[in-house]
Simulated assay, not measured.
Amino acid sequence: MLSTGDRVVFETDGFGGAGIVDDAMPDGSVIWVWTDDGMGRRMICTKDGASIAREDGESWQSAR
């Protein structure tokens, strides 16, 4: 399970990026990430085909 403050990389809707987990639903279905490079806060829905992994390479969730 991802925790607030974890560094992650993600891909969703043809957009990839990295950032820090701000919050997550208890079931992990939705994760909010403060993205790097000034892209703001992004909501990532894993059931929409998004993938997200800890930056250290540990895969956490993929709906592909």
Rank of each mutant, 00 (worst) to 15 (best):
I52K: 07
S62G: 10
A18D: 05
R7K: 11
G49W: 05
M25R: 14
I20K: 15
R7T: 02
M25F: 10
A50T: 01
S3P: 00
M39E: 13
T46F: 08
D23M: 01
D48L: 13
S59C: 07
L2C: 04
G28M: 09
M25E: 15
D48T: 10
D36S: 08
R54W: 10
K47P: 15
G57D: 06
F15R: 13
D37G: 10
D6W: 05
R54N: 07
R54M: 10
V21Y: 01
D48H: 13
W32T: 11
D48E: 15
V8G: 01
R7I: 02
D48V: 03
S59P: 00
A63M: 00
F10T: 02
V8T: 00
G57W: 03
G16D: 11
W60M: 15
D48C: 14
R7D: 03
E58H: 11
T4G: 09
C45E: 11
E11A: 12
D22Q: 10
R42D: 06
Q61L: 15
W32K: 08
G40T: 05
F15T: 09
S29K: 13
R54I: 05
S3F: 04
D48K: 10
S29I: 03
G40Q: 05
D37V: 13
I44C: 09
D22F: 04
D13T: 01
V9Y: 03
G40F: 02
A24S: 08
Q61H: 14
M43F: 04
V21W: 02
D48R: 10
G5P: 03
R64A: 05
D6F: 04
S62P: 00
S59H: 10
F10A: 08
M25Q: 12
S51N: 12
A50Q: 07
S51M: 14
R7N: 06
R7A: 06
M43P: 05
M43R: 09
Q61Y: 15
V9C: 04
S62M: 04
A24P: 00
D36H: 03
G19H: 04
S51W: 12
G5T: 02
F15H: 13
G17A: 01
F10D: 08
T35W: 00
V30S: 13
C45D: 03
G38E: 07
G19F: 07
E55I: 06
G49C: 05
F10G: 09
Q61K: 14
V21I: 07
D23L: 01
D36V: 00
